[in-house]
Design a protein around this nucleic acid. Structure first.
Lengths: 355, 355
DNA sequence: TTGTACGCGTTATCAG
DNA sequence: CTGATAACGCGTACAA
């Protein structure tokens, strides 16, 4: 009765209204509306459906979530959505989520382990169906302990967890081989005849940066080259600029690899402003292959960012979750463009000296 | 008792556990945990708090949402998160949301009115605390009817609605004056001595594009100049490229304004590849001032994208919502950089002819 | 100041 | 195949 009164107002119509309107029990109405494959007579089902559309019924997702102990949301924890690397990942997640009527929650940490943990906690409390952690690890961070604790809590609950980079927790990880990324890229440049190759590091302390640095070093030493030409860096434009400014003060390298496209842009433009011709004098390469790499005609390593997010989302909302110890590694490849070229014989002298 | 048994397992601890542990009623426990300003004796409050931390209690946000008829989430409906324009908006929202423990749900529509409505519906059913619609309007879209219906439903419910561009619905709107944006920019270029100015349009059918086009036309005609040099466009890089390719086949304009930075990048690089010197021969300007504009040294209109999102979020989760008919307009301004300059007297001839 | 009891809108478990 | 009814975990009148 109170229901009947409410139906006239702006109050939402509930399943009870539908049931009443269709002359069936709440249970029956639920069975047809909740999409379950439960045996209901075709006739009554039709009646319920009709009543639902008549009353323009929309299920209360929250009530449903309470009893199912699970919302139709999936959280993606990233560094910063304005960074195209993370934006692509988020897009991959969202595309999959949308297909199954899941909502995508975005959590910017600005690479703060504390914020990361705070969001982890919040998502758990929100009973997200899945949590995708895309930020890299800081092996030294004191917050790692709490992070692992949170991961354990997740494994006890029903929310599925996926890591997009190895975080040393019991959760499936989908990632790229960061060491291989720089190794392949470095080898590519060496194959082009470059000997004196500089490397602009990624963000300090991040395990991803560490591994990329290792890859560079390994490729150089295995070719008998000096791997010590390194510049402190980061993933943004500014670190690239700073490194390039330093390069301009000394003997130029044959080539420079930056740990990200953005940093490479910084290197590229600063070098050019300094009067250096790219790639005639110096070759430049980045990592990511983001949307603007093409604009700068930048040689780079293509990272499957979108696929990382998409696959993680599938594991999280799909029928087959990734096993807690499963790790899949997605392939990357060099995208040769105009900022790299064979080293000219005229400039080879310096290179030979360095080698 | 069943509770006591569960406490040992991985099952979550509930408020009842806390209450029992603190020897108080469920109500009392609720009153201290829910943060309400309800009179509770300091001693008992302390006991409850202690019990909560002892049991590492975390409130079930879904249960809370059910009774409050409101989740701690805010949905932001955008075109595409990999577009830095929308990413900045989303970041503005998220920053505010995080401060108050709200979760930010991101919804990519790819500018499809149908998808936009689908997300609108989903967010409503999810009982989002607020919904921010950032995509532009397609005045001709048949889905607009349903959109308005959804907006009405929102106004009847408790979820707050904010538009980031005028959508002709009963909801507060925070936006920029798109007409003024292009007018100011065009006037700036005219002030630099340019006469033959080309305009690369925004995405067809979008009201934002329409208004920007109007602004360009008005500024030109009020200066007694020909406003007919327009190129079909869009907000991406490719449309810019295509327009520039066309320009290269005919008499070059003095300057070109693109409806977005990305399009301007396309114009800029294509023109340069075509042997045109920027800005000596042609000045180029964009709209947005995104992160890469500085890299290209692009003159542009700075749009307060981040602030748009941040202010919308405040209206949505803050103490004072925007009135349904309130419209605030955030200021924009020209950022002069290196892709525009005074027109050289040598090139002035053509300009005079056109004027 | 504290406790009791009910309601939020669904789903799931039993009987019929 | 259908219908009562008990959870789900929390907030809040109302009563004490």
């Amino acid at each position: 009765m109170s229901r009947a009164r409410r139906s006239g107002t702006g109050g939402k119509v509930s399943l009870a209204d539908v049931a009443a309107c269709a002359n069936v029990s709440l249970a029956t109405a639920s069975r047809v509306m909740s999409g379950a494959t439960y045996p209901v007579a075709a006739a009554t089902r039709e009646r319920v459906l009709q009543a639902a559309t008549d009353l323009s019924y929309a299920p209360n997702l929250i009530a449903r979530a309470l009893v199912r102990r699970m919302t139709n949301t999936i959280g993606v924890v990233i560094g910063d959505i304005t960074d195209s690397y993370f934006a692509e990942i988020a897009r991959g997640v969202e595309d999959q989520a949308y297909r199954r009527d899941f909502l995508t929650i975005i959590c910017n940490t600005d690479r703060s382990p504390a914020v990361e943990n705070a969001y982890f906690r919040l998502l758990l409390d929100h009973h997200a169906a899945g949590i995708i952690i895309a930020g890299g690890a800081f092996p030294q961070a004191p917050e790692n302990e709490a992070f692992r604790e949170l991961a354990k809590e997740a494994s006890r609950s029903a929310t599925r967890l996926v890591m997009l980079t190895d975080r040393d927790v019991e959760a499936p990880v989908i990632s790229v081989d960061d060491r291989m990324v720089t190794m392949d890229l470095t080898r590519y440049l060496i194959g082009l005849g470059h000997r004196r190759i500089a490397y602009v590091e990624g963000l300090t302390g991040l395990s991803t940066s560490l591994r990329r640095g290792e890859g560079f070093a390994r490729a150089m030493t295995e070719a008998g080259l000096d791997a010590s030409l390194r510049y402190p860096g980061g993933f943004g434009i500014e670190p690239g600029r700073a490194a390039a400014a330093l390069m301009l003060r000394n003997e130029l390298p044959d080539a420079v690899i930056a740990a990200s496209d953005e940093a490479a842009f910084g290197v590229l433009t600063t070098l050019q402003q300094g009067g250096v011709e790219i790639p005639r004098q110096v070759s430049v390469a980045g990592i990511d292959d983001n949307r603007h790499a093409q604009l700068f005609n930048l040689t780079t390593m293509r990272l499957p960012t979108y696929d990382l997010g998409a696959m993680a989302a599938k594991w999280v909302i799909g029928d087959e979750p990734g096993a807690p110890d499963s790790r899949v590694t997605l392939p990357c490849r060099v995208i040769p463009r105009g900022t790299t070229s064979w080293i000219s014989t005229a400039d080879r002298k310096g290179a030979l000296r360095a080698g």
